[in-house]
Design a protein around this nucleic acid. Structure first.
Lengths: 334, 334
DNA sequence: CTTCTTTTGGAAAACGTTTTCTGAAAACGT
DNA sequence: ACGTTTTCAGAAAACGTTTTCCAAAAGAAG
C-alpha cells in the first residue's frame, strides 16, 4: 500500500506538506502543490481514511437508526427512501453512514447503546421516528447528550439535538379539507372515520390535532380510532365503522390501503384519504388524496444537520415542505 | 476518552496485556485477565475500532452494492431485505457494512471505484445483480481481483470471487410446472406467454432455460417476450398477447403485477405466475403462484462468505434453497 | 542593506491500537 | 537440583495520517 510517506519521498517534500496539500491548506506554494499532486497521480496514492480519522479524531461517521420491521408486514419503502437520501448526501459531503435497525438495539440498555456507538466512532446519530414509549433506552441515550442527534419525525430540540419533520398538523388539515371538499361535496351529512396512527407518538398526535381542528371548522361528526399504522388494524376498523360513515381519513397510506381493501370486501364505496405519498398506492391500484413528503430530501437535510451539530452549532427545528397529492393509478404505473 | 493505556495503568499491567485480553489471546493468566476486565469495567473503557483497524490492517468493512432504483418505479423491497440480512449478520460477526447504491457508482471508471473503495478501507464487496452490460465498470473492477467479492445473483467464481444464488433454472421449471398443472388443467391447448427478465442477464437466462425445458416436456406453445423486469413493460406485453394465450408466466412478481393489471383493464381472466415471493403481491391483492426466496438469509450468507474470502479461502458457488409458494390475499394481510 | 513581517516547508509528536520479540518465571522431566 | 521446555507479561515498533511548532526563505519597509 502506497502511503503519504512514499508520496513525500517521490515529490521530494515532507510528509506534512503532502498532508497539507491533501487537505487544501492555504500555505503551500502553487509549484509545490503541483509537484505533490504529480507524485500522487504517479503513484496512484489514495489516502487512508482510517488513519486520517484516527489522527484527526474526526471519523465523519453518522449512524442512521431506522425503525424498519416494527410492523413486519409493511413494504419498507419509507426507510429505504431515508437511506438513499442520507447515503447519497453523505457521500457528497465526505461523510459515512452506518445503518442501524432499531430492532438491533431493542435489547440493549442506553449504556450499551452508547458503548456500541462509541466503539463505532460514531459522531452523530440520525434517528427516525423515535417513540417515547417504544424506544425507551434509545430515548434515554439521546437525552443523555452523549451524541449529537438529528431526530426525524420526533420532537425534542436542545443544544445537541435537532428535529426535522413536516408540519404534520397543517398537512393533515389541508389534505383532509381538500379531500372532503372534492369527495363529499354531494352528501349533506359529514360523518368521518379518522384512523389515527399511534396512541402516543408525535406525528400521530399532530395529525390528529389537524384533523380535529378541521372537524370543528367544518362541523364534522368525527369518529377517531387508533390504527397503529397497521394495515390490518385499519382494515378491521373500516369493516366495523365504515358502513355508517361517509368518508375515511387515515394517518398513513398503508392504513388507507387497509381501509380500501375492507371496502372492497364489503362491496361498498367510500372515499379514502391517505398520508405519505408512497409508491405503494400505485400497487393498490386506487386513486386517493394523500400528503406527499420527500423522504430522500428530508434525510439529506438530516445529514447536513448532523454535520452542523458536529461542527459545534446548536440544535434547531427544521420544517420540511409537504404537498397535497391525488395519486392516480396511472401516475405510478406509467 | 479513556484508552487502553488508562486501563493498563489501572490494572497495573502493560498495554499489550490489555490488548491480549481484549482479543482473547490464549496466553494470559486467568487472574490477570480478571484484573484487566475489572479495570475495563471500572473505567467504562470501550475499544476504539478505528485505531484497531489501523493497527491490525483489518477494517472488517464490507461494501454492499445494491442496484436500487435502476427501475425507479419499483418499491424496493428486495434490496431492503438484502440490507437487513447483511447488516444484522455483520453485526453478529463484528463486521461493518457500508451500503452503496449502484447509481452512485454509475459515473465512475473501474479505477475510480477501486480508489473509492480503497479509501474507505473496504476489504470485500457484496454485489447484487451485477449486469455484464449495465455495470461495465463495476464488472471490470470485480474482475480485476483488487477486492474479494461475493456476487449475489450473478455468475463468475474465481480465487477471489464467490457467487450466491438459487437454482433459477430449476425454480422456474418447478413453479411453472405446478402452476400450469393446477391452473390450466381444464384447457386443452397450452399457449403460454412467458415474460422474461432482461435480454442479457444471468438470472433471466437461467429462468428462461428452465421455462424452455418445461415447454419442451409439456409440449407447450411458448411465446417469449422480454419485460426487462418492468411492471409497465409486462403490462403492455400482456395487453398485446394475452388475449390469444391461456396463461402468463413472468420472471418476476413485479412483472406479474403488471400482467394482472393489464388483465383487469381488459376484463379477461388468465392465470398468472410470478417469481420472487415479495410482499408486494399482497398489495396487489391477488393470489398467485411464485417462487419464494429468503433474501435476508442470502445476504447473511454473503456476509459470511465475504469473511471467508477475507480470511484467504478461495471463492466458490453457493446455491440457496427456494420454495414454491402460492401467495394468497390473506397470507399477507392478516 | 538592515530589520521586521509574512509565507512556506519540515521535524516530530501525537492518535489508540496490534503484534512481534524478548526475557523472566514457572512447570516439567530426570 | 539441574537443565529444558512452556507459560506469561512487558517493551517497543509499527499502522498512516494530522497537527503543532519552529526555522528558513522571501518580501516589505525603512
Amino acid at each position: 500500500m502506497v502511503s503519504i510517506r512514499d508520496v513525500a519521498k517521490e515529490a521530494g517534500v515532507a510528509i506534512s506538506t503532502v498532508s497539507k496539500v491533501l487537505n487544501n491548506y492555504p500555505n503551500v506554494r502553487g509549484e509545490t502543490k503541483e509537484r505533490v499532486n504529480r507524485a500522487i497521480e504517479q503513484l496512484g496514492f489514495v489516502p487512508n481514511s482510517i488513519a486520517s480519522a484516527l489522527s484527526s479524531k474526526r471519523s465523519g461517521r453518522v449512524a442512521l437508526v431506522l425503525d424498519v420491521n416494527r410492523n413486519a408486514q409493511a413494504v419498507d419503502e419509507i426507510p429505504m427512501q431515508y437511506m438513499i437520501g442520507a447515503i447519497n448526501r453523505a457521500k457528497e459531503l465526505g461523510m459515512d453512514i452506518i445503518t442501524v435497525f432499531a430492532a438491533m438495539l431493542s435489547d440493549m440498555s442506553a449504556e450499551e447503546m452508547t458503548r456500541y456507538f462509541q466503539s463505532q466512532s460514531v459522531e452523530a446519530l440520525i434517528v427516525c421516528s423515535l417513540s417515547r414509549t417504544e424506544d425507551e433506552a434509545l430515548c434515554k441515550m439521546v437525552k443523555s447528550g452523549n451524541f449529537k442527534t438529528v431526530l426525524i419525525n420526533a420532537p425534542g430540540v436542545d443544544e445537541n439535538t435537532s428535529s426535522i419533520h413536516i408540519d404534520n398538523q397543517k398537512a393533515q388539515y389541508e389534505v383532509a379539507k381538500t379531500f372532503l371538499t372534492e369527495s363529499t361535496a354531494f352528501c349533506t351529512s359529514k360523518r368521518i372515520l379518522y384512523i389515527a396512527g399511534k396512541k402516543e407518538g408525535y406525528v400521530s398526535g399532530e395529525r390528529l390535532k389537524g384533523m380535529q381542528k378541521l372537524a370543528q371548522e367544518m362541523e364534522l361528526s368525527l369518529l377517531v380510532r387508533v390504527g397503529n399504522f397497521s394495515e390490518l388494524e385499519a382494515r378491521k376498523l373500516t369493516m366495523q365503522y365504515a358502513p355508517h360513515k361517509d368518508a375515511i381519513i387515515c394517518a398513513s397510506d398503508l392504513m388507507a390501503i387497509g381501509a380500501m381493501k375492507a371496502l372492497i370486501d364489503m362491496d361498498i364505496y367510500r372515499p379514502v384519504c391517505g398520508f405519505d405519498g408512497t409508491n405503494l398506492m400505485g400497487y393498490a391500484g386506487k386513486q386517493m388524496h394523500t400528503v406527499g413528503q420527500d423522504f430522500k430530501r428530508t434525510a439529506a437535510c438530516a445529514v447536513e444537520e448532523a454535520g452542523r451539530l458536529i461542527g459545534g452549532e446548536a440544535g434547531r427545528e427544521i420544517i420540511m415542505p409537504h404537498k397535497l397529492m391525488r395519486i392516480k393509478y396511472l401516475d405510478v404505473i406509467s
